[in-house]
Simulated scan of single mutants.
Amino acid sequence: MALHLLGKDPESPEGKSPTVYYDDVTDNYLVQGWKVLDADRLSELDLPEHETVVEIPKRMVQFFPEVNGGGGTGV
């Protein structure tokens, strides 16, 4: 597995979450964020049993290459 750290939430109190990674083997993103536990919000999603949902703040979008015009901005 070849994960590349693209960026961490600059406002995270301990610098541990949320975080965006890129996997260059699968060509997918991995997003570490806050667990969505609110039943009302989850009921609005068509979420298969094998999937989960995490939440990240809007400011984290900057770390996706498609948004920032290239590679991740880093940490």
Rank of each mutant, 00 (worst) to 15 (best):
P48I: 05
K16F: 10
D38I: 05
E11P: 08
D24C: 00
E49V: 10
T19A: 07
H4T: 10
Q62D: 02
K16I: 09
Y29T: 01
S17K: 12
S12Q: 11
V54S: 06
V54H: 07
G15Y: 09
L37N: 11
E51F: 14
P48Q: 06
M60C: 11
Y21V: 05
E14H: 13
V25C: 09
Q62R: 06
L5V: 11
D24K: 00
A39Y: 08
Q62P: 04
G71D: 08
H4P: 04
G72D: 04
P10W: 08
S12C: 13
S17I: 11
T52Y: 11
G7T: 05
P57E: 13
V31L: 02
G33S: 07
K8G: 12
Y22P: 03
P13S: 14
Y22V: 04
Y21T: 05
V54R: 05
D27S: 01
T52Q: 13
A2T: 14
D24S: 00
T52W: 14
Q32M: 10
F64I: 02
W34E: 15
V31M: 02
P13W: 11
R59K: 09
K35R: 14
R59V: 04
G72C: 01
G69V: 02
E51Q: 14
T19P: 00
K16V: 09
R41S: 13
A39T: 11
K8H: 10
G69M: 04
L45W: 06
M1K: 14
L47E: 10
Y29C: 01
G74I: 04
